[in-house]
C-alpha cells in the first residue's frame, strides 16, 4: 500500500510539473505537448478506435512472433545443451547474433518477404529466439546432478528421464527466458513497425510524427511503456517469483 501511494504522488507531481513548465515556457503542442494535450490525443484515439486497432494488430504480430520464437528457442536450447558439437558451432553463432540488434535485419527481411506483416514477424522472431535459446540451454545444463541420480535409481533414463526430470527441472530458467524473449520481442516489434508498415502502435507513432502530431506521438510512447511494464511486472515477474519459490530457488 505504502509503495503504491508513493508512486501515485510521484506521477502526479511529475504530470503537474510537466504541465506547469510547458505552460510557463509557452511552447506549442507541435513542439512540446502538455499532459492535457496527450490525454486528449489518447481519448481521441480510443474514441475513433484507431488505437484499439493498432493495439490489436501489434499484439497479434507479437503473439505469433513470440510463439514461434519460444518453440524455436526451446528446441535450439535443448539441442545446444545436449550436443557438444552443436554447442561449439551453432552455439557460438547464436552468441554472436545475440549482440546484433534484431532490427538491423529489417532491410534483408524486406528484400525477402516484402514490406509487410511477414517482415515484422521475422524481426520479432529474431528478437525473441536467441535469448530463449540461451536461457533454455543454461537451464538444461544446470539441472542438479542429484535429481538425475535420484531419478536413475528409480529406473528412469533416456527420454523418460528427460521428459520427467531434466525438462521440468529447467523450468525456472525457461520462465526467465520467456520473460526476456517477450521484452526483446516487444522492443523489436516497435522498431520494426516504425520502420515498416501498419497498422500497429509503432506505425501510428511514425504516422503521427509525419503529420507533426506530437501529442499522439507521446500518447503512443506512453501506451508502449505502460503495456511493456504491465506485462513485465504484473505477469512475468509474478510467475517467475512463484516458480522460483516452488522450485526452492528463492534466495531469501
Amino acid at each position: 500500500m505504502q509503495r503504491i501511494i508513493k508512486q501515485l504522488i510521484f506521477f502526479a507531481v511529475l504530470l503537474i510539473a510537466w504541465e506547469g513548465i510547458v505552460r510557463a515556457g509557452g511552447w506549442t503542442p507541435d513542439v512540446m505537448p502538455k499532459p492535457t494535450d496527450v490525454w486528449q490525443a489518447l481519448v481521441r484515439g480510443f474514441a475513433d478506435r484507431t488505437l484499439i486497432f493498432d493495439l490489436a494488430a501489434s499484439f497479434q504480430r507479437l503473439f505469433i512472433g513470440l510463439l514461434i520464437s519460444l518453440a524455436l528457442g526451446v528446441g535450439l536450447g535443448i539441442l545446444l545443451a545436449k550436443s557438444k558439437t552443436a554447442d561449439e558451432t551453432l552455439g557460438s553463432l547464436i552468441l554472436a547474433l545475440q549482440s546484433v540488434p534484431s532490427i538491423v535485419w529489417l532491410p534483408l527481411a524486406i528484400m525477402w518477404f516484402g514490406l509487410n506483416e511477414k517482415s515484422v514477424i521475422f524481426i520479432v522472431v529474431l528478437g525473441g529466439t536467441l535469448v530463449m535459446t540461451i536461457n533454455m540451454r543454461m537451464g538444461i545444463k544446470s539441472v542438479a546432478p542429484l535429481y538425475i541420480r535420484a531419478a536413475q535409481t528409480m529406473g528412469s533414463r533416456g527420454i523418460d528421464l528427460f521428459v520427467r526430470v531434466i525438462f521440468p527441472a529447467a523450468i525456472p530458467y525457461a520462465v526467465t527466458g520467456v520473460r526476456l524473449a517477450w521484452a526483446f520481442a516487444w522492443r523489436a516489434l516497435m522498431a520494426a513497425e516504425i520502420l515498416s508498415t501498419g497498422p500497429g502502435l509503432g506505425y501510428t507513432l511514425k504516422y503521427a510524427s509525419d503529420f507533426g502530431d506530437m501529442s499522439l506521438v507521446i500518447a503512443v510512447m506512453i501506451l508502449i511503456g505502460i503495456i511493456g511494464s504491465i506485462v513485465d511486472y504484473a505477469f512475468f515477474q509474478r510467475v517467475e517469483k512463484n516458480v522460483m519459490r516452488r522450485w526452492g530457488l528463492e534466495t531469501n
Binding site: L146, R149, Q152, T153, G155, R157, A169, R246, W247, G248
Partner: peptide, 18 residues
C-alpha cells in the same frame, strides 16, 4: 546399472520440487 531393485536415499532428500 541403476534399477528399481535398489532404492536409494541421499543426504539431501532429492524430492522433485515440481
Amino acid at each position: 546399472k541403476p534399477g528399481k531393485d535398489r532404492g536409494m536415499v541421499f543426504q539431501q532428500a532429492a524430492l522433485f520440487p515440481w
